[in-house]
Simulated scan of single mutants.
Amino acid sequence: IDERRDPYLSTQKATDYLKDLYKVYGDWLLVIAAYNCGPGNVNKAIYRSGGHYDYWKIRRWLPRETRGYVPAFIAAAYTMEYHKEQNIPVAQPKFTFQNLDTVHLTKRTDLSAVEQYTGVSQEELAFLNPSLKKGVVPASFDGYTLRLPLDVMKAFATNRDSIHHASQKMVADKSDDEEENESTATKSASGPGNDMAKINYTVKTGDNLGYIAEWYDCRAQEIRNWNGMYGSRIVPGETLTIYVTEDKINHYKKVDDLSFSQKQAIESKQDQGVDVTTVNASTTAEEDECDCKIYTVKAGDTLWDIARNYDGVSTTELKRANNIRYSSSLKPGMKLKIK
């Protein structure tokens, strides 16, 4: 949890700090300057100006950023106060405190479990609770206040025990996965097994070991071991040795000929539990036949961000239209259908 990212708590702390600064300077412009560059720099500027406690008289001795920060603050405050007179339209927030409620949690709660039982997407939950850095409310004696849309409070209260149980199961499953990965890493260190076949992959522009490992259902460290690599640097045109299971070698041989978006689309299907070894490469080009808009995912995108760019589109509709089960399945280069 990073409470600095919580708009309510961070604003409360900021206003407390501003009040303390006003007790020192007795002038709000000097307070804003000190908030930006620190009281030490303001005190130095006051001294160099001959003891003036007037922002405009000490401005020349302040850091360049602060000389621009205070006028910008004044302009922002003026715009907020007189936006009607200046015919400046005001954007209404998607959420207000009038249609939100809170619930106090002391047990570990995973936002994916909350999504499962309330229907509120993880992106929306993260937006409402920005201090949660990893999508999880940690267990604590003092607890954490989780913000939720008012209309799902009944669903949360009804399924509260199920949500906690699901969160505990996720922890157990994660521990099992970590043990399995550790076991796999130990085995892979000694080389490929007898049921593995060797194929080659030619590195393309934009590739990295993480992507390649996903496309061939292996680990990046295995690729390093197979190719005698000590780092993660690869260059376009370089040939990598990859070992895959013999019974699926025909599927993996096709990967080298696919475009980046096609490979990412197949990986997305695999995240949804589809047997990608039976997927024909041509089916990944569905955007050519879709009577809809196509959006190419960029680095840092979330379903929540993408949905907000299209009127009437929700994250649930995006998941349904693109067969996405988890938000974490999004990867740069993926093509999303917007209906």
Rank of each mutant, 00 (worst) to 15 (best):
E3V: 14
T11S: 12
T11I: 00
K13W: 15
T15M: 15
D16T: 10
D16N: 13
L21V: 11
Y22C: 07
K23L: 10
L29Q: 12
V31K: 10
C37Q: 14
C37H: 12
N41Q: 13
N41V: 05
V42D: 09
Y47T: 15
R48F: 07
S49Y: 01
G51Q: 04
D54G: 07
Y55A: 12
I58T: 05
R67G: 14
P71Q: 11
A75Y: 15
T79G: 13
E81N: 13
I88E: 11
P89K: 11
V90A: 10
Q92H: 15
P93V: 13
F95T: 11
T96G: 14
N99A: 15
N99D: 14
D101C: 13
T102H: 14
T109M: 09
A113F: 08
A113K: 09
Q116M: 14
T118L: 03
T118I: 03
V120K: 03
S121K: 05
Q122G: 07
E123W: 13
E123G: 12
E124T: 14
E124D: 06
L125R: 06
L125W: 06
F127M: 11
N129L: 08
K133D: 15
G135V: 04
G135N: 04
V136K: 04
D142T: 12
T145G: 07
L146T: 06
L146R: 04
L148P: 05
L150N: 13
V152F: 05
A155L: 09
N159C: 05
R160I: 09
H165D: 14
M170N: 11
V171P: 04
A172T: 15
K174G: 13
E180G: 08
E182L: 13
G191I: 02
G193P: 01
N194H: 02
K198P: 03
N200D: 08
K204N: 04
K204Y: 02
N208T: 01
N208V: 02
L209Q: 01
I212L: 04
D217Y: 03
W226N: 10
N227E: 01
G228P: 01
M229Q: 00
G231W: 02
R233C: 03
V235A: 07
V235P: 00
G237R: 04
I242Y: 00
I242D: 00
Y243K: 01
V244T: 02
E246W: 02
D247P: 02
N250F: 03
H251E: 07
V255C: 02
V255Q: 07
D256C: 02
F260Q: 08
E267V: 10
Q270W: 09
N280Y: 06
N280M: 06
A281Y: 03
S282E: 09
T283Y: 07
T284E: 13
T284V: 07
E286F: 15
E286V: 07
D288L: 15
Y295I: 04
K298R: 10
A299C: 04
A299G: 08
A299R: 12
G300D: 06
D301F: 02
L303W: 04
I306G: 01
I306Y: 02
N309D: 14
Y310G: 00
D311L: 01
V313N: 02
A321F: 12
N322R: 06
N323I: 11
N323M: 11
I324M: 13
Y326D: 10
L330A: 06
L330I: 09
K331C: 10
G333T: 09
M334V: 10
K335T: 04
L336V: 09
K337I: 15
